[in-house]
Design a protein around this nucleic acid. Structure first.
Length: 204
DNA sequence: CACATGATCGCCT
DNA sequence: GGCGATCATGTGG
């Protein structure tokens, strides 16, 4: 039996090889929409048993805290599950949906400002299946990210990190968010961002 | 291709 | 007690 938090071996690659370097605290403390845009093209990496696994992020969604009916922190909701959203920018918030899939978020802004960016899709290194991470649940499954990783500091010595790279930025597509039909006005807010040229973007 | 459905359970009401 | 920041599979046109 394969451990649930074991990354897919086909995603093994050290991001330094590709010229990526670790994002700073300041990167995450910016406005949530800005961070969501900047994360398209960044590298999400998982350290497991001394090796790196990861992929290039191709789709994100911004969740704007208390004023956003689509966010778990809507109207200031603050429960044990959502608590990591209230941490300083650069922490990880992971939750379980539909009783079986995990979703990973990058917390933005400052401590006490519960906003975050959902990582919806990524493409793996050369040789990995095209659509292995083409959705938030699949991304977590492939990297072995579960609730056990919720609350981790992306800048600490913890096992999940994000790397960025200078240079050409992907052409961005923008749309309303997926799966928030219940969110009233916020349902139509254009807060989903994706690499317009990637095959690994989710298709609902 | 466009729906429709079942799986499965923690979280919030 | 209801339902969700999802996914894979099945049906029918």
């Amino acid at each position: 039996m394969i451990a649930k938090n074991r990354p897919d071996p086909r995603l093994g690659l050290d991001p330094a090889v590709l010229g990526f370097s670790e994002a700073s605290r300041g990167f995450y403390r910016r406005g949530t929409e800005t961070v969501a845009r900047s994360l398209v093209g960044a590298w999400i990496a998982r350290r497991w048993r001394g090796r790196w696994y990861g992929g290039r992020i191709v789709e994100t969604e911004a969740y704007l805290g208390a004023r956003d009916r689509g966010a778990h922190s809507w109207a200031g909701r603050r429960t044990a599950r959502v608590e990591p959203m209230y941490a300083d920018g650069g922490h990880l918030y992971v939750f379980l949906v539909y009783g079986m899939h995990h979703c990973a978020n990058v917390v933005t802004r400052r401590e006490g400002e519960p906003e975050a960016v959902l990582l919806r899709a990524a493409e793996g290194p050369e040789g990995a299946p095209d659509r292995l991470m083409s959705g938030p649940g699949k991304l977590c499954a492939a990297l072995g990210i579960t609730k056990a990783e919720s609350g981790l500091d992306l800048l600490g010595r913890d096992a999940v990190r994000i790397f960025t790279r200078r240079g050409r930025r992907p052409a961005l597509g923008v749309s309303p968010r997926i799966g928030v039909d219940y969110a009233g006005e916020a349902k139509s807010w254009p807060l989903r961002f994706f690499d317009a040229d990637s095959e690994a973007v989710s298709r609902p």
